[in-house]
């Protein structure tokens, strides 16, 4: 088998993971998937049902419960050396593990792959997506983190599932101890990572009250997740967990509704892969308006209620 796709069990069913799996499948018609975490059997069985998955390998141990990279990287590297491509989703799990695994294999990773041109040629962003470079990687093992495209979806196949193989876990190195963990409530009817629709607000909303009053009903009507720019988060309009962009989360929903945000390069880096972008903004020259498929130009305090009303 030539391609190994790595999955964190906590996000195994997430849209981002499944979309990245579809990207990995562009490298080979059938790939191995390795699921890492604790209590990973259910996730492994679910992944075994996806088209193009030849085998699911499971690294399941209590000391992988919180994606401990120190414990996982060595054992992943031991298996990864047998593959031509090792692919992670470009999420926190992948961004943390890919360079460690690459270092252990003594190869240079290729990060944030946007497009696979052939087995060794990839397109990736520079400077928060302001530039796109094409790189050729001639390492014996190509370690990649892949941005999921909003158009790429893993598909559950009918009929028999791929075999699931339990691997011997590595030791607990005891490097890190989890003291506490808190998980913020979803930012709307859907969680950001899984949302097909995202409603994002910027500083143009003017206040935290306006942010909630205007965007929450829209998100509720569309079954969308709420998100924000860094400027809106810094201004206290929204919590940090909602931040989209270079220093926040990367999302690839089918529909991205951008309200009162200009579309700084740093923000665009987090939502560039959205399928359809709708901008509601008073500035027709704002970068987000230029990027958008559809734009409503006007005062957002008038446009958002009108938009909501039009949805019925």
């Amino acid at each position: 088998m030539s391609v190994l796709f790595l999955v964190d069990v906590q996000h195994a069913a997430g849209r981002m993971t499944l979309a990245a799996l579809a990207v990995a499948r562009e490298l080979a018609p059938a790939i191995d998937v390795m699921v890492c975490g604790t209590d990973a059997q259910d996730a492994a069985r679910a992944l075994a049902g996806h088209t193009g998955v030849a085998r699911v390998r499971v690294l399941d141990a209590p000391h992988y419960a919180h994606g401990e990279e120190e414990n996982l990287s060595m054992v992943i590297a031991q298996f990864a050396g047998a593959y031509r491509h090792v692919v992670f989703a470009a999420d926190p799990f992948g961004r943390s593990l890919a360079p460690r695994v690459a270092a252990m294999l003594d190869v240079a990773p290729v990060t944030d792959v946007l497009e696979i041109l052939d087995a060794e040629t990839f397109r990736r962003p520079l400077c928060a997506g302001a530039l796109i470079e094409t790189v050729r990687c001639q390492e014996r093992v190509k370690v990649l983190t892949a941005h999921p495209s909003s158009h790429a979806e893993a598909v559950v196949r009918a009929g028999s599932a791929a075999p699931v193989e339990k691997l011997a876990p590595g030791p607990d190195l005891g490097v890190r101890t989890l003291i506490s963990r808190s998980v913020e409530a979803p930012s709307g009817p859907a969680t950001l990572g899984a949302a097909q629709i995202v409603v994002a607000g910027g500083l143009g909303l003017g206040s935290a009250e306006a942010f909630r009053a205007l965007l929450a009903p829209l998100a509720a009507r569309l079954g969308a997740a709420l998100a924000a720019t860094r400027a809106a988060v810094d201004a206290g309009f929204a919590p940090g967990a909602w931040q989209i962009g270079q220093s926040g989360r990367v999302v690839a929903p089918r529909l991205y509704i951008a309200v009162g945000l200009s579309g700084s390069r740093q923000h665009l880096a987090g939502m560039r892969s959205a399928g359809c972008v709708v901008a509601i903004n008073r500035d027709p020259d704002a970068p987000i308006v230029k990027l958008a498929d559809y734009a409503l130009i006007g005062d957002l305090h008038e446009q958002v209620p009108l938009f909501l009303k039009a949805l019925g």
Partner: peptide
């Protein structure tokens, strides 16, 4: 300084 993009250096854009 653009810390979160510190791997994107001038040398990388020279080819463009």
């Amino acid at each position: 300084l653009w810390a979160s993009c510190s791997s994107c250096r001038l040398e990388q854009v020279l080819g463009m």
